[in-house]
């Protein structure tokens, strides 16, 4: 946008924003530097933005310990399986409810909107999962968050923007709704599918509360749960009991281990970041059009 006004203001604003942006990323750079530094350098507080006495020992030990590797495997299984289920379920409910003539549509939509306003809360949901015998399985995490109401609305809005003439022509030729969904709607919805897949996948990868809530067996813990346990038990300055400290923290500087775990847990997100940015911005736009 072309604006009148002095150049000085523009430069000052640019400088201020650049500083803010820099402050937002410097912490990551510091953590990366710490993860590649020696224990001695970390403890004597010498590391700023570049590794001191560069070495890979922390990573090697983390690899050898195996706990973190297993938690990464769990994260991958949880994310891939969960995202697949999310996408199938979201499509199956969004498509019928995007058809204007469907009987009972308003009632279904009303009931879905109401779940955004009121919920039973953590405990009743937990008790239900317990009664269904799903504790300590990934199914507990997958099923209790099968459809995000927000993503459902994005999908439904996208489907309803597809011109009705396309589906009507197929219907006249005798195609049923399954055929219409698979052959006509889905191929035209690839941008929405990509967006929501990323929304769901990032959500699964990053969240730790549901896993911590439903899965107490440590062999099934994801990388984020392991990380949180490390964080909450690591700092000797804090009074937290070290009871749930992992094996890892015994033979290395806790700060170094934690930094390396943070870097490892973040790598997958950074790999998809270019796509994330593109599709997430689109998703926010679709979502903000309606609802």
């Amino acid at each position: 946008m072309v604006q009148t006004g002095s150049r000085t203001v523009t430069v000052l604003i640019g400088f201020f924003l650049a500083t803010v942006a820099l402050l937002m990323v410097l912490p990551f750079i510091n953590v990366i530097a710490v993860s590649f530094s020696s224990s001695r350098a970390i403890v004597s507080n010498e590391v700023t933005l570049w590794p001191v006495e560069f070495n890979l020992r922390t990573y090697q030990n983390l690899y050898r310990d195996g706990n973190l590797i297993r938690s990464l495997q769990n994260s991958v299984i949880l994310t891939v399986g969960g995202t697949l289920l999310n996408m199938v379920a979201t499509t199956l409910i969004a498509f019928p409810l995007s058809r204007p003539g469907l009987r009972g549509r308003k009632v279904f939509l009303g009931m879905i909107i109401f779940t955004m306003l009121f919920s039973g809360g953590i405990i009743p949901t937990y008790v239900l999962v317990q009664q269904l015998g799903l504790l300590n399985t990934f199914w507990a995490v997958w099923l209790t968050a099968l459809v995000s109401t927000w993503n459902f609305f994005i999908m439904k809005t996208f489907f309803s923007t597809i011109p009705a003439s396309l589906t009507e022509a197929a219907a006249i030729d005798g195609a049923n709704d399954v055929y219409i969904l698979v052959r006509i709607i889905l191929p035209l919805s690839l941008p929405a599918i990509a967006t929501l897949t990323l929304f769901y996948a990032v959500g699964h990868w990053n969240s730790y509360f549901n896993v911590m809530l439903y899965i107490t067996r440590s062999r099934l813990h994801t990388v984020m749960v392991v990380l949180v346990q490390m964080i909450r038990s690591v700092d000797p300055q804090l009074l937290e009991t070290a009871a749930d400290a992992t094996e890892l923290t015994r033979f290395m500087t806790p700060e170094g281990v934690q930094a390396a775990a943070i870097v490892i847990a973040t790598v997958p997100i950074m790999l998809v970041y270019p796509f994330l940015q593109k599709y997430f911005v689109k998703g926010v736009m679709i979502g903000s059009l309606k609802q």
Binding site: V202, N206, M230, I231, A265
Partner: peptide, 9 residues
Amino acid sequence: FLSWAVLGG
């Protein structure tokens, strides 16, 4: 795009 586990750490 980062988990609170990561940000908190």
